[in-house]
Design a protein around this nucleic acid. Structure first.
Length: 557
RNA sequence: GGGGGCGUAGCUCAGUCGGCAGAGCAACGGAUUUUUAAUCCGUCGGUCGCAGGUUCGAUUCCUGCCGCCCUCACCA
């Protein structure tokens, strides 16, 4: 046993007289240096208290989350309450954005201003202390002087780094000329019971940054900027489609039959209806019902869910833009996509158009290159004809692809993905796909083997997918039935008769589009991992330990 | 799901060819009226991811498990 090691540094036995002399969760060593016992009882949760009355092996018991806050911060909290200074007041003076103060520095110098935010970088000089105050818009130095803060001064140490405060004071500069608010009033807005991570490196562990995004955001200006940029992208997408007269709609996330894409769904259940439901893998089939209903131009930006692998490019829930426009076809949609990228360059990229992504520069200013799927396939496979099934099969084997039990269109497309996709640095539109891999797209009038569909690729990554929507209900039913024959868990288990019935009422010819907002954000912000553009990517939970295991304090609450 | 890597203080990281666990920053106490990675003096802080095994002795070696990262598969 390691009891000896475990006891290292403890000089007194725990008063609870446990057999080991140590009872960590209940009796903690004092951190102050005062005389007297080195052990003291700390306030704790009722659950823990019940355990500790017997003191039976509580060392491995997980305490309340708040048991993990630092002693000194807790003591400061108590002290604040003793002094009747509310640590979490219901309201405080309304602050002005710091950027607004800095922007009007010359005009407002010498005047009293109010700013609020998180206190960082405390630098103490006895009768003077400097700190920085950071809000969403920026940061400014705060000067605390004893002369200006006679009442506050005695209790100044109760306000510390990472606390949220509102500062009232004169806007001026320090001796080095730095803009500074010389505080004349300090209002504690919310006491921080945990301090911020290290000030140079901050949080670098990707996992911790995702799990504790609030910390990531609060200490990294770049993280805040990243998610503000994401918001601006979504805003611009909305503005673009709104400007074209599209209607933003919301369609069901809980769907009795999943469809509109090929993917494994999450399965759930409605109790009152006793009905199995799926979280949608795509909104497509509902949006097209709205075209039947005459809404003509609709779009939705919403979460879709796919029960598949997780990687730097895949999160189980992600945000999808889908748009549908009546009286339009694939070519019109292509123009819409180019228009959208032009708008994104003008606004989100502030007129620039080149982004660096995965070590390469990409010019996102339209027009984009356009190439045929079959032509690209032949080009990267020694002139091979996509429809020449035996030779394509041989090629698939050459590439080491799994072909067993797969139909020709499936393994032929696998060959495309293996040989062509990585080469599609783009931005490039790949168009005219074989109809067999496009169950929802309209056939080309020139060649019945071809569907009117295109995908947009950048850096070998699929960004968008569009087609002239199939509106022939009989053809649609036939293709659905063909899908059902696959009997895999990525295809619906039953025919969406409701959707086919909707088509029977007549859907106008239409062009539809799907764009992954997360990937679009990755591209526009030069971000490698989807986890850095999703605020809270899915991670395994760490806060509940399996029986016999310890849930330790490193877990996020 | 397969393969590879990682897990040490609040954070960022050293380290131990098996022998008393280290630094910087943060935190705490003190000094300091112009700093901004402030400085100076002092102090606290670790079941070395978890559980077994081997051993006189395991943070180190072995096995299993948990979590994360990379990669492949699946996919957008």
């Amino acid at each position: 046993m390691r009891a000896s090691k475990y006891r290292r540094g403890r000089r007194a036995a725990c008063p609870c007289a446990s057999s080991t002399g140590v009872c960590r969760s209940v009796c903690l060593p004092r951190t102050d240096r005062g005389a007297g016992p080195r052990w003291e009882r700390l306030p704790r949760s009722p659950i823990l208290r019940a355990v500790s009355n017997r003191c039976a092996r509580p060392a491995r018991t997980k305490g309340a989350v708040t048991d993990q806050i630092a002693d000194d911060r807790r003591q400061k909290l108590d002290k604040l309450r003793e002094l009747s200074i509310p640590p979490f007041p219901p309201r405080v003076p309304r602050p002005e954005p710091i950027a607004a103060l800095l922007g009007a520095l010359n005009e407002r110098k010498g005047k009293t201003v109010v700013a609020g935010g998180r206190l960082t970088q405390l630098r103490d000089f006895g009768k003077l202390r400097f700190s920085h105050l950071v809000d969403r818009s920026g940061g400014i130095q705060i000067g605390f002087q004893r002369e200006r803060l006679p009442d506050f001064w005695a209790n100044r140490k109760l306000v510390e780094a990472n606390d949220l405060v509102v500062i009232e004071g004169e806007l001026g500069t320090s001796q080095t000329g730095e803009p500074t608010i010389w505080a004349s009033r300090v209002v504690l807005a919310s006491k921080a019971l945990r301090h911020a991570p290290e000030k140079w490196a901050g949080l670098v562990d990707v996992e911790q940054r995702s799990r504790m995004r609030w910390v990531d955001l609060s200490i990294h200006e770049a993280a805040r900027a990243q998610f503000m940029r994401r918001a601006s992208i979504v805003r611009e997408v909305r503005r673009y489609f709104d400007g074209l007269g599209y209607v933003e709609v919301e369609t069901p996330i809980l769907q009795p039959i999943f469809g509109g894409a090929t993917a494994r769904p999450f399965v759930t259940h409605h109790n009152a209806l006793d009905m199995q439901l799926y979280l949608r893998i795509a909104p497509e089939l509902y949006l097209k019902r709205l075209l039947v209903g005459g809404l003509e131009r609709v779009y939705e930006i919403g979460r879709v869910f796919r029960n598949e692998g997780i990687s730097t490019r895949h999160n189980p829930e992600f945000t999808m833009l889908e748009s549908y426009e009546a009286w339009a076809d694939m070519r019109d949609v292509m123009a819409r996509v180019e228009g959208l990228f032009a708008a994104l360059c003008d606004t989100v990229l502030e007129g620039r158009s080149v982004v660096n992504f995965r070590g390469r520069d990409f010019d996102l200013r339209p027009p984009f290159e356009k190439r045929g799927y079959l032509e690209l396939f032949a080009e990267h496979n020694d002139g091979l004809d996509w429809f020449d099934a035996p030779r394509v099969l041989r090629r698939a084997h050459e590439l080491g692809l799994k072909t067993e039990g797969l139909p020709h269109p499936k393994f032929a497309n696998d060959v495309f993905e293996a040989t062509v996709e990585h080469a599609l640095q783009g931005p490039i539109f790949v168009h005219d796909y074989p109809v067999a891999i496009c169950p929802l797209a309209k056939q080309s009038p020139d060649d019945p083997r071809i569907a009117e569909r295109f995908e947009l690729f950048v850096a070998g990554m699929e960004i968008g997918n569009a087609f002239s929507e199939l509106n022939d209900p009989i053809d649609q039913e036939r293709r659905f039935l063909a899908q059902l024959e696959h009997k895999d868990d990525e295809s619906p288990s039953e025919l969406d008769a409701d959707y086919v019935a909707a088509l029977e009422y007549g859907m106008p010819p239409a062009g539809g589009l799907g764009i992954g907002i997360d990937r679009l954000t990755m591209l526009l912000t030069g971000t490698e991992s989807i986890r850095d553009v999703v605020l809270f990517p899915l991670l395994r939970r760490q806060d509940v330990a399996a029986p016999g295991q310890t849930a330790t304090g490193e877990a996020a609450p």
